[in-house]
Amino acid sequence: MNEMTEGHTVKRYDDEMIFLHRLVLEIGDLAQDQLRQAIQTLNDKNPSAARDVISRDQELNDLDIQADEEFINLIVKRQPMAKDLREIITISKAVSDLERVGDEVRKIAQLTIHIYDTDSRPPNRQVLRDINTMAAFVGNMLKISLIAFDELDALKALDVIRLDSELEEEYKSALRRLTTFVMEDSRAIGHMVDAVLGLRALERIGGHAKNIAGYVIFLITGSDVRHESLESIEKQII
């Protein structure tokens, strides 16, 4: 693993830390996979697959609960200090962020059901194009933030924070595009609202990825950067 989790005099302590670390990565992988699947159902116009995605969210919730139990146990047994303490707190927070990513993914899957499981006319591809690009962007952010966590790479975490401001811009311009689209064709208003909800969910996932990146920076430097400007974060790291 890495030096945050290894080297304790008590070997079991290492094992427990590594287990938790891997659990986070596992939850992260599952969340990423869910996101991909949800977007896929949207593209495939497949509401039944979307239902599968929603039911798979329960798996994520179970892992979240398991992670909670594990780190409470670890706190009781080991009374972590310094970087172990930060690691535990980071893990705890990252897990709940990832669990919320799952919730957002569920919203996207619900979107598929809502759009394609009714008799109404399917939406224009144009409406859903932004969702696809943003999903790819957000998926990348999530991936980088998890790599940053795994490798304790503050620079990668910083990248995620940078990407988040790009995402904000992307989100705003996507909204603008949708607005123009609706102005041209007012019948598409129903689908547009769905699309906005989807974009909103993706924007939130990006926010969670940014949070995770912030925790990673806290884990490495010991200072909480979540509510600081990008410049001041950069100054602290470099």
Partner: peptide
């Protein structure tokens, strides 16, 4: 929570 020296860190984290 955030010792600055490696030795301190190693000691207090066991």
């Amino acid at each position: 929570t955030n010792p600055q020296h490696k030795l301190t860190e190693d000691y207090i984290t066991g």
